[in-house]
Design a protein around this nucleic acid. Structure first.
Lengths: 253, 253
DNA sequence: AATATTAAAACATCTGATCTTTTAATATTT
DNA sequence: AAATATTAAAAGATCAGATGTTTTAATATT
């Protein structure tokens, strides 16, 4: 018998509701800001208990599709999925995949040089001003571990935002975020900071000259230098959650 | 008063539990396969009701961190987050961001030429055989709308897998998945199929010759041709969910 | 007019009972 | 002895309904 049957899973009630609502959103029936009925009304409508409906709401909330507010004017509202939801999902995924520094560096060297190529063509004076201020702030930081990371992220984020490509922004920012977690423990001394500032200066200088080729090279050099700097002080991959928790992961795959 | 206070949100019990368990996972206290206590025991341990604990379990399950099985040997087990969870999250995100065809093409032209550059260096005869069989299968498909997409995905997935970079794989595959949804309605005639096969042939030919430069160019041409082909028949962005539901999104945003 | 109180809507949590699923252990049949 | 059927237990799934908490609108008071 060459038939291929699909496995039938006894669907949970809450899962069924989740799918119905998610479909309604993806089909456009439910728009951002739309309010779903109250727990009481909606559970009655579905003919299920309040607990089942609540579980469905929790899941949709976890997906970032729903915002639930308490109080008289509260309720369940359709929400646009925000970046942090996707990033968290990526962080969870990367935690188990546990990519090496090489993998992060590689995708950066694929994307960011191209990003600054585009930037070189279309960057405005205002953008350049922002980037220069960012470098100044970084140089003035004395031993600014955390702050330096924020400024570093902001620098790269600014560049990718100029390209106006949401997908690339998401990827670059997520990689940046994952890298910060590694950087934070691995290395943050003055030499490292000076090296980063130097790299950023060269990139901005090329952008100012509207020279794509030079900008691209400056970016490649910068990314490779950063990797080298991080390799110098070895260490396992670390992940810092939103709540500031640390995790040293040395699983040998 | 220049102080900056953070907003205090009355945390839900379930959210608190979610964070505790997620932290325990990211800190390495909980490993893949570990079983959490039963609902009854664990809720007693936390000093909360079963409903609150169950809501926490639902959320962790939505994150892809937990697998819950019913029955005598069932329970809640720590699970590795799988690709489909992240992809779904990306689909949700892209739905609202609604990137244009240009954005997909752009990130592809940044990543995939570099991917085949690497492939050209390290590709094996077995890999090439796989790719050639893939092309043959595609050419033999008469009007294989869906199947063609599957083969096309498999082709690009194979290439990116050769690079052995989990991050790039995730990105390329997600973009691929999103594109299929657009392609499926936009265009799938014989000319399109022939054009795709032709592009793939050129890429494989360059890989066979272990010529990175040629492979890269063949890939760039291929991606651009596909975009042109898709632009020809205009249409809104479409999204197909896991369950096969369609959504035409024309929000002018 | 400003402030304080109250009421109501909606979510949050709890208790405890009753299915349903799954599998291990046991009993029955062949 | 082996195959099959039955039973029991563990654990999740669902339900019903009570009670608490938040938030805001309406009202009353100063």
């Amino acid at each position: 018998m060459g038939f291929k049957f699909e496995i039938v899973k006894a669907n949970r009630i809450s899962q069924n509701i989740v799918e119905q609502i998610r479909s309604a959103i993806l089909e456009g029936e439910l728009k951002i800001g739309d309010q779903l009925p109250s727990e009481k009304d909606f559970s009655k409508h579905f003919g299920v208990s309040k607990s089942s409906l609540r579980e469905a709401y929790r899941v949709l909330e976890a997906y970032g599709l729903l915002e639930i507010r308490q109080g008289m004017t509260g309720g369940a509202f359709i929400k646009e999925v925000d970046l942090s939801t996707v990033k968290d999902s990526l962080v969870n995924y990367f935690f188990f995949q546990n990519p090496g520094l090489r993998e992060y560096t590689q995708i950066r060297t694929f994307l960011e040089p191209q990003v600054v190529r585009i930037c070189a063509e279309i960057i405005t004076d205002k953008d350049i001003e922002y980037l220069e201020n960012n470098i100044l702030a970084m140089e003035e930081e004395p031993e600014g571990e955390t702050f330096m990371s924020d400024l570093d992220s902001a620098f790269h984020k600014k560049l990718v935002d100029i390209t106006d490509n949401k997908i690339i922004s998401l990827v670059v920012e997520s990689v940046q975020k994952a890298l910060i977690n590694i950087k934070r423990i691995v290395h943050t001394d003055q030499d490292f900071l000076k090296m980063v500032c130097n790299g950023h200066r060269k990139i901005v200088s090329a952008l100012k000259a509207h020279d794509p080729e030079q900008a691209s090279h400056a970016m490649i050099d910068h990314i490779n230098e950063v990797e080298k700097g991080m390799m110098a002080s070895k260490g396992g991959t670390m992940i810092i959650t939103e709540k500031g928790l640390l995790k040293k992961n040395r699983t040998s795959q």
